[in-house]
C-alpha cells in the first residue's frame, strides 16, 4: 500500500503542475492563528482547579504571589499552553519535511530513530542517575534522539549507491527496533519501566517555564529555517532526479533538512515525550487542504499542529478530571479513524 501510494503521488505530480492553493492556505493560516489564540485562552482558563475567568485575568495582569490560583495560571497553565503550541508546530513541521524529502507518505520523525534513541538515553538516566534534574533529562533525551538519528543516517548512507528513501526507512526501522530492545532491557533490569511508560505516553502536563525558555529559540529558529527551505522541499518531493535536473544540490538540501527535522522533533519530544500521529497526520491534512506546494504546507502544518496539540492538551485534562489522560493516547484515538478515512479518500 505504501509503494502504491508513492507511485500514485508521483503520478499525480507528473500529471498536474505543482500548484498550491494560496487562497485556501492564507485562509487556514489566518483562521488557524485566530483559533489557536482562542484555544490557548481556553487552555489557560480550563483545568483541574476551578478558577474563575476574572481570576485568570488578574493572575496575568495583576499578579499576587500569595494566591495559589494565580500561581496555577502563571506557573502551570500558561507554560503548558505555550509549550503545547510550540511542540505541536515542531512535530507537524518535522513530519511535513520528512514526508516531502523522503517522498514517503507514512514518514514521520519516529522513523528516524529519534523516539527510540531518546528512549534509550532516558532509560539509562532513570536506571543509573535517578536524581537527574528534569531539565537535564530533556537535554539527554535530545542527545539520545540525535544519536538515534545519527545511527539511522550512518547506516542509511553506508550502502553503495548512497541514501535513498527506502534505505533510510529500513535503517530507521532496524535501528529503532534495536534501540527499543535496549531500552526495554534496561527498563526490565532496573525496573524503571513505569517511568519510561509515562514518558512514552506523552503529554504536556509537566512543561514549566525553564523548559519553555530552552525550547522556544530552537523551535523558533528551526521553523523559520523550514519555511526558508520550503521551496527546495517542494522540488525534492517531485523526485530527486527532477530536483537535481533543476540545478538543486540535493545532498546539501537533504542534510540541512534532516538537521532541521532533528532539532524540531528532538526538542519537541524531549519536552512532551513521544507523541505519535501529529507528525504523520497534520501534514496530510494540510496537503489535502492546500495542495502539494510545501511553501504552503509547512506554515499550514505549523498552525494546524499547534492548534491540534493545544486542543488535545485541553482534552487531556478535561476527559476524566481531576486525572490527566495522556494526550498522546487522545491524539491517536482521534487521529487513527480520521487518518484511515483520509488514506482511503486519497487512494481513490
Amino acid at each position: 500500500m505504501n509503494a502504491f501510494n508513492t507511485r500514485h503521488d508521483a503520478a499525480n505530480a507528473r500529471q498536474m503542475p505543482v500548484k498550491g492553493r494560496p487562497l485556501a492556505a492564507i485562509l487556514i493560516i489566518t483562521g488557524g492563528l485566530a483559533a489557536l489564540a482562542l484555544a490557548m485562552a481556553a487552555a489557560t482558563a480550563i483545568g483541574a482547579a476551578d478558577i474563575r475567568l476574572s481570576t485568570v485575568w488578574d493572575a496575568l495582569f495583576r499578579f499576587d504571589p500569595e494566591l495559589s490560583s494565580h500561581h496555577v495560571v502563571r506557573d502551570l497553565r500558561v507554560p503548558r499552553a505555550l509549550g503545547s503550541a510550540l511542540v505541536g508546530a515542531g512535530l507537524a513541521v518535522a513530519g511535513a519535511m520528512m514526508q516531502g524529502m523522503t517522498r514517503n507518505p507514512l514518514a514521520d520523525s519516529g522513523l528516524l530513530g529519534l523516539n527510540a534513541g531518546a528512549g534509550v538515553m532516558l532509560a539509562v538516566c532513570f536506571a543509573f542517575f535517578p536524581q537527574t534534574p528534569y531539565i537535564l533529562l530533556m537535554v539527554y533525551a535530545f542527545l539520545g534522539a540525535a544519536i538515534g538519528a545519527g545511527l539511522v543516517f550512518g547506516i542509511g548512507s553506508m550502502a553503495r549507491g548512497g541514501m535513498t528513501p527506502v534505505r533510510l526507512t529500513l535503517a530507521g526501522a532496524a535501528v529503532s527496533a534495536l534501540l527499543t530492545a535496549v531500552s526495554e532491557g534496561i527498563a526490565l533490569m532496573f525496573r524503571v519501566g513505569q517511568d519510561l511508560a509515562f514518558w512514552y505516553a506523552g503529554g504536556a502536563a509537566g512543561i514549566t517555564w525553564p523548559q519553555i525558555s530552552v525550547l522556544w529559540p530552537w523551535i523558533g529558529v528551526s521553523l523559520i529555517a523550514a519555511l526558508l527551505m520550503s521551496r527546495s522541499i517542494t522540488l525534492l518531493s517531485l523526485g530527486e532526479e527532477v530536483a537535481a535536473g533543476l540545478g538543486m544540490r540535493t545532498r546539501w538540501v537533504k542534510t540541512a533538512g534532516m538537521l532541521v527535522v532533528l532539532i524540531l522533533a528532538g526538542s519537541s519530544m524531549s519536552a512532551v515525550g513521544s507523541i505519535a500521529f501529529i507528525g504523520l497526520m497534520v501534514p496530510h491534512v494540510a496537503r489535502f487542504l492546500v495542495g502539494v506546494d510545501y511553501r504552503w504546507i509547512i506554515p499550514c502544518s505549523a498552525v494546524l499542529g499547534s492548534l491540534f496539540m493545544v486542543l488535545a492538551d485541553i482534552g487531556a485534562r478535561s476527559v476524566n478530571p481531576p486525572y490527566e489522560t495522556p494526550a498522546g493516547a487522545l491524539i491517536s484515538l482521534a487521529g487513527v479513524p480520521f487518518f484511515l478515512w483520509l488514506a482511503r479518500r486519497r487512494g481513490r
Partner: peptide
C-alpha cells in the same frame, strides 16, 4: 494511589500533609 496534578493540589485545604518524598535532593 491517585495521581494528582499540582494544579488540583493547589486547592488542598487539609490541615496536615504527610509526604513520602522519593524526590529528595532533586533541585527542581
Amino acid at each position: 494511589w491517585n495521581p494528582i496534578s499540582l494544579e488540583k493540589l493547589s486547592e488542598l485545604t487539609a490541615d496536615y500533609i504527610f509526604l513520602v518524598n522519593y524526590e529528595e535532593g532533586q533541585t527542581d
